[in-house]
Deep mutational scan, measured.
Amino acid sequence: MIVFVRFNSSHGFPVEVDSDTSIFQLKEVVAKRQGVPADQLRVIFAGKELRNDWTVQNCDLDQQSIVHIVQRPWRKGQEMNATGGDDPRNAAGGCEREPQSLTRVDLSSSVLPGDSVGLAVILHTDSRKDSPPAGSPAGRSIYNSFYVYCKGPCQRVQPGKLRVQCSTCRQATLTLTQGPSCWDDVLIPNRMSGECQSPHCPGTSAEFFFKCGAHPTSDKETSVALHLIATNSRNITCITCTDVRSPVLVFQCNSRHVICLDCFHLYCVTRLNDRQFVHDPQLGYSLPCVAGCPNSLIKELHHFRILGEEQYNRYQQYGAEECVLQMGGVLCPRPGCGAGLLPEPDQRKVTCEGGNGLGCGFAFCRECKEAYHEGECSAVFEASGTTTQAYRVDERAAEQARWEAASKETIKKTTKPCPRCHVPVEKNGGCMHMKCPQPQCRLEWCWNCGCEWNRVCMGDHWFDV
């Protein structure tokens, strides 16, 4: 396979590697080409510095992935760790964990309700045991953590790749202090920090972006993250068709209702045909949960890209028209025109101005929308079919299609509260000796007794199943 190397943020060049090629071997190839010592090179990928003893497969490097290699003399205490030698983080029983690669970060837990604080980093599902597709590297999971809308060759929703760059020099040479644990960490600028490894760059702020994971991409090709779309790892039924499908869209209502993408497309087109989208002054033209839940309008309007190009163009047109109407304007009634106009409040005669090729020149009556006339309008008909009709959803289907309910059931079956801080902690095999993952707590306690870890627990039921 081919990976592209950008040395000291210059133009990239291809390097041929195998899945079992080590990072140090990659350094040696680059060092020979650039005429520099291999031990002064640092390989940066997806916000993480890659260790010498890791392989291309370990690092989730795919065909035509772009890695950054910078030349920086080692500072005291760094060289041993980078070589894969006596790194205290690798000691058996050590409590410190390697910062998780962005290629394996899962933010789907952050669609849980606000009262489930902490689960994004504490609760991990076991539903990723799908067998890898044919042709994928051994052991590589097909679980997708992110979804994007690819405006490039795909023109559809695709699995996405999370990447990070330095907000100062805009190069992907920043190593994160810690990985993101929720969508806010990724979507809110300057929320996460790190250290830029580019020479002479003092940058410390992280800037995240997404790429389409279905095809090789260049540095400049980015895609918009659709953070309401998630892999259906909890096997929730769709609120409309009641099938279990994946991926799904999880509405931001209190129940976190789930809808499959085909039904979401149908829901949007139906509402669009009836012009029953909601115009929100802050958000724009949007839709609420299909069950009509309060405070559930979709905030990231790129989710409506699921409509496809033709329907999305209609959505944008109707949204612009609705904006004009909300501002007190009118639409030209001549067939084939429909231009938005903003006449004076007491102006009865409205002319669709033909300047700049935008208007048709038609003069019409503001009251009856017919060709302009003197005197009273002959008839004014009330528009028919403008009443909002509820999208029919079966109550039982709505009850079963809740992301929140599956989460709470998982928590109930696989977790116990920490005796000190009461945060839910998952036990997935292993011994009875637990350690609270909350940095402010870190209590060592017994899963069996529910009390602080002691010699009695150690001698009596340390390794009970």
Rank of each mutant, 00 (worst) to 15 (best):
S145Y: 04
D62R: 14
R256Q: 11
K129R: 10
D394Y: 05
T103E: 14
P99A: 13
C238L: 01
S127F: 10
V380R: 08
P216E: 12
E452M: 15
W453F: 04
N144S: 08
R191H: 07
E96H: 10
T21W: 14
F277E: 01
H227A: 14
D126F: 05
H200T: 13
A379F: 11
D184I: 03
R348P: 05
P180Y: 01
L307V: 07
K408R: 08
D280G: 06
H279A: 08
V17W: 00
M458Y: 15
P281A: 09
M327E: 13
R396N: 10
L228M: 14
T387S: 13
V56K: 01
K299S: 11
S296C: 00
Q57T: 10
L249N: 01
N8V: 00
L297G: 03
E322Y: 04
E321F: 04
P153H: 11
P281V: 07
V105H: 12
V5K: 02
V250K: 05
E376L: 09
A172V: 06
G359H: 14
L123V: 11
L50A: 03
A339N: 14
P189S: 07
P439Y: 07
V330Q: 07
D460Y: 05
V164Q: 06
Q252M: 07
F208N: 01
C418G: 01
G338M: 05
N190A: 08
V105E: 13
L358H: 15
L112M: 14
S10F: 08
K220T: 14
F13K: 02
T242S: 15
V29E: 11
G338K: 04
D464V: 15
L325K: 05
L123H: 15
C337G: 03
A291P: 01
Q40N: 09
G93R: 12
P202W: 07
P343R: 06
V164D: 03
V111Y: 12
V456M: 15
S65W: 02
G160M: 00
E207F: 05
E310L: 08
R402V: 08
A371H: 10
K129G: 11
Q64C: 13
F208V: 06
W453R: 01
V148H: 01
F45Q: 07
R170Q: 10
R191G: 05
T270F: 04
E195C: 08
N8R: 01
Q252C: 07
S218A: 14
F13N: 02
N313H: 13
C441E: 00
V36R: 03
G430T: 15
Q389M: 14
I306Y: 03
K408C: 08
A172H: 12
K413H: 15
T175Q: 11
R97A: 14
R156C: 14
S378V: 09
D86Q: 09
V43L: 06
S223D: 10
M192A: 05
N313R: 12
E49L: 03
F7K: 02
Y372H: 07
E374H: 05
T386G: 10
A397Y: 09
G118S: 10
A320W: 08
C431N: 15
E310N: 06
L61I: 13
R348V: 07
Y149V: 03
V248Y: 00
Q438E: 06
W447S: 07
A405M: 13
Q389E: 13
C337Q: 03
H303T: 12
V250H: 03
C457V: 01
S205T: 15
C421Y: 01
K161F: 09
S65R: 05
V350P: 03
T414I: 09
L358D: 15
V350S: 03
P137V: 13
V30I: 07
C59K: 02
K427M: 08
G77T: 11
F24W: 13
Q311R: 03
R140M: 11
V121W: 14
T21S: 11
M327C: 10
V224W: 09
C360M: 02
T21M: 15
V330W: 04
E79C: 09
A379P: 08
T415P: 09
S384I: 12
I23Y: 01
G385S: 08
C241G: 01
C201E: 00
E399H: 11
D346L: 09
V117C: 14
D219T: 09
N58K: 13
H68Q: 04
A138M: 13
F146S: 01
S378Q: 11
E49Q: 03
A46K: 13
G357Q: 15
I411M: 12
N273H: 03
V43G: 01
W183Y: 06
M192Y: 03
L50P: 00
T270E: 05
R305E: 13
L61C: 02
E322N: 05
N90D: 13
D60N: 15
K27T: 03
D62C: 11
T177G: 12
K416T: 06
I142H: 14
L301V: 09
V3D: 03
D274K: 03
E395M: 11
P202V: 09
W54Y: 06
Q71P: 05
L341T: 10
I66G: 03
V157I: 09
I239T: 06
Q440A: 15
L26H: 00
M80T: 11
R89T: 14
H373A: 02
H279Q: 09
S116E: 14
A397V: 12
H257L: 01
E98N: 11
L301H: 08
K151T: 14
R366K: 14
E382D: 12
D20H: 09
K435I: 12
K435L: 06
C166L: 00
V278N: 06
Q25E: 15
K76S: 14
A371F: 10
S65N: 06
C377G: 02
P417F: 08
T415M: 11
I188A: 08
P199N: 08
S296M: 00
Q276I: 05
R89D: 14
S223W: 03
G319P: 10
F251G: 01
Q347V: 13
Q63E: 14
C95D: 14
D460I: 12
Y315L: 10
N90Q: 12
S384R: 10
P343G: 07
H302R: 08
Y267C: 02
A206I: 03
C201P: 02
G450K: 02
W403Y: 06
A120Y: 05
T125G: 14
R402A: 07
S378H: 11
P180K: 00
K435F: 12
D106T: 08
S223F: 06
G375E: 10
S108D: 14
C150I: 01
C268G: 10
E321I: 06
Q326D: 10
R97N: 12
I236K: 09
G194A: 08
G114C: 12
G354W: 07
D262H: 04
V278A: 09
K427D: 15
G459I: 15
A405G: 10
E399P: 05
L266A: 12
S378F: 13
I69F: 05
G340D: 04
L297T: 08
P335N: 09
P137C: 12
I23S: 01
H257Q: 02
T55C: 06
R234A: 09
R402E: 08
H303W: 01
C59M: 05
E300C: 07
R42K: 08
F251R: 01
R366L: 09
G152L: 06
C451E: 15
C154P: 00
G430Q: 15
Y372C: 08
L261A: 03
Q165D: 05
I188G: 07
G152K: 12
A371M: 13
C241P: 02
C241I: 00
N144I: 04
V36Q: 03
R104Q: 14
G329E: 03
R104E: 11
R396L: 11
P113W: 06
K211W: 05
A138C: 10
L187T: 07
V224D: 12
C451R: 15
Q25R: 06
I66P: 04
M434R: 04
P335C: 05
I306R: 00
L41F: 04
L331A: 04
S136M: 12
C441V: 02
N428G: 09
C451M: 15
G93P: 12
Q171A: 10
W445K: 00
H215L: 01
V423T: 15
R305W: 06
G459H: 15
D18Y: 13
Q63F: 07
M327N: 14
W403S: 03
N448W: 04
G430Y: 15
N52V: 00
I44N: 02
G375R: 07
G12Q: 09
C169T: 00
R170Y: 06
D460R: 06
A91I: 12
N454E: 02
Q311T: 06
R75N: 14
Q440S: 15
P333I: 03
Q326R: 13
L272P: 01
I2G: 06
A91E: 12
E309L: 13
Q438S: 04
D87C: 12
E309Y: 10
Y267W: 05
S167C: 06
